[in-house]
Write a protein that binds this DNA or RNA. Structure first.
Lengths: 149, 149
DNA sequence: TTTCAATGCAACTATCATAGTTACAGCTCC
DNA sequence: GGAGCTGTAACTATGATAGTTGCATTGAAA
């Protein structure tokens, strides 16, 4: 089991929009950096757009950030690409026997723990802004470097 | 995307072994409380056994705890049922373009964040022992009650 | 107004994990 | 030996993911 790569693709896209604001970011251009199909990019970009994180221009094409980097957390991206339903990271078995003491009561207890665990994970994502991520990324690029687009 | 119910089934099984130590815990009996097929139970129980959390008797049948409740954390169960590979909760897209500055460097940065988020989640699981969970469960049962097995 | 590149979306594919099910060999104990 | 149970293989249905093709629509520029 893994959380869909739509999340990492979303972060990648927003990073590109931030770091190379001068370029014309078509889905094909973005797909070239992400290493996937333009349609996959359009799907994710559509979700970022719906979440108010990006603008996308139909016709002439091109995407831009819809918000300041400081106003976008990793949790915003994670929510935008709809990768895990809220409160449903863990799948609880669905038919515990209500006639058994354990079966009748374990769901409540277990859901509480699951919820805490999921929240802890999401809190980490919420604590990181795209600004911070892009800054670290820019430093990496500065040190190691890399050519092309 | 959701983490497999094998985890919640595993916790349910261990709770049953703890709370009703007098019973003969066959896969069919356990399946009755969990609300699933005996084979599903045997599969999970086999994983708990391999992880050293439960004993299972072939032939005559029946499962028992292999460790004190205090010595079993929810993380142990989570690891036992092999629900998420270590460090791989998030799926990173696999072919970022090394010729693009962002593509070449985002993996490192993103994996760091993903790893932190996953660890935060697992730390919560590690902080809860089956003893604590069973105590809460027993209190629930005491308050609300429920008949049968 | 024609043209052209790009988006948005539907539809289809392959692949994989999950979870349920049947079947049966092998083990244990009475 | 027989009854009952485990361990495991094999098969099924279902659903998510991710890639792909095709096309109607859009918008800007020639």
């Amino acid at each position: 089991m893994q959380i869909s790569s739509r999340f990492s693709i979303g972060v990648h896209i927003l990073s590109l929009l931030a770091i190379r604001p001068q370029d014309h970011h078509t889905s094909e251009w973005l797909a070239g950096s992400v290493g996937t199909n333009p349609v996959v990019i359009r799907r994710v970009l559509g979700q970022l757009k719906k979440a108010g994180l990006a603008h996308v221009k139909a016709g002439s094409g091109g995407a831009t950030l819809a918000r300041e980097l400081d106003g976008i957390t990793l949790l915003d991206v994670y929510r935008a690409v709809d990768v895990v339903e809220a409160g449903k990271l863990f799948h609880m078995h669905e038919q515990p026997n209500p006639a058994c003491p354990v079966g009748a009561n374990i769901e409540l207890v277990l859901r509480l723990m699951m919820s805490k665990a999921q929240s802890a994970m999401e809190d980490v994502l919420a604590a990181v802004t795209m600004r911070e991520l892009v800054d670290v990324l820019a430093r990496e690029i500065g040190e190691k470097g890399a050519a092309g687009g």
